[in-house]
């Protein structure tokens, strides 16, 4: 078991850590989820059919682990809202993720792009992180996300377009004031 872990760690750990960090933007949580990914890898490595590369297999597991996390988090939040029946007030309750002080970005333009990643849809965020932060190819991204290549291209285009529009809107707001 240890040799499998070591091989995955040596080859992909930093990429894996970075991917999950940009998905959840919290270091402690990233550490937990990375461990969860390794656990799933070790538990299912025997059944890995090697139809895809180890790297894309690992990242598709990572993707599912983060999706599971977000779904559980949503369910937990909704149960709390249902319990207290706060109605519309509940809408102002934010996700329990702390503000990401784990990362300091002083450059304003970089900060904007970092923040606006969260406004993108889950697929768009995945594609933008894998393509441009992780420098994965379109084909690798498509395999990890179980998308067609054209779907990756469209999602990438839409994600960038969404960020561009938000930047433009902010600039317009700034100009107006």
């Amino acid at each position: 078991m240890k040799d499998v872990f070591e091989r995955f760690y040596d080859n992909y750990h930093h990429d894996l850590y970075r991917y999950i960090f940009y998905m959840v933007k919290n270091k402690q949580l990233t550490e937990d989820l990375v461990q969860e990914v390794y656990i799933r890898v070790l538990q299912s490595y025997q059944s890995f059919r090697k139809e895809s590369s180890e790297k894309t297999w690992l990242f598709s597991i990572a993707r599912h682990v983060t999706i599971d996390f977000f779904r559980k988090q949503n369910r937990r939040r909704n149960r709390i809202l249902d319990y207290f029946d706060w109605g519309t007030k509940g809408e102002s309750i934010q996700d329990p993720l702390p503000e990401p002080e784990d990362i300091v970005i002083k450059d304003e333009a970089l900060r904007e792009v970092y923040d606006y990643l969260d406004v993108c849809s889950e697929d768009q965020k995945n594609v933008l992180i894998l393509r441009f932060i992780q420098s994965f190819s379109i084909k690798e991204t498509a395999e990890i996300l179980n998308m067609s290549i054209s779907k990756v291209k469209t999602t990438q285009h839409r994600g960038i377009k969404k960020i561009r529009k938000l930047i433009e809107e902010k600039q317009k707001g700034g100009d107006a004031s």
């Binding site: 850590y17 792009v113 933008l128 441009f132 932060i133 561009r164």
Partner: peptide, 13 residues
């Protein structure tokens, strides 16, 4: 925007 995404910090564990 793509260039900015590429310049985001390389977070390390």
């Amino acid at each position: 925007i793509i260039n900015l995404l590429k310049q985001l910090p390389k977070i390390e564990d």
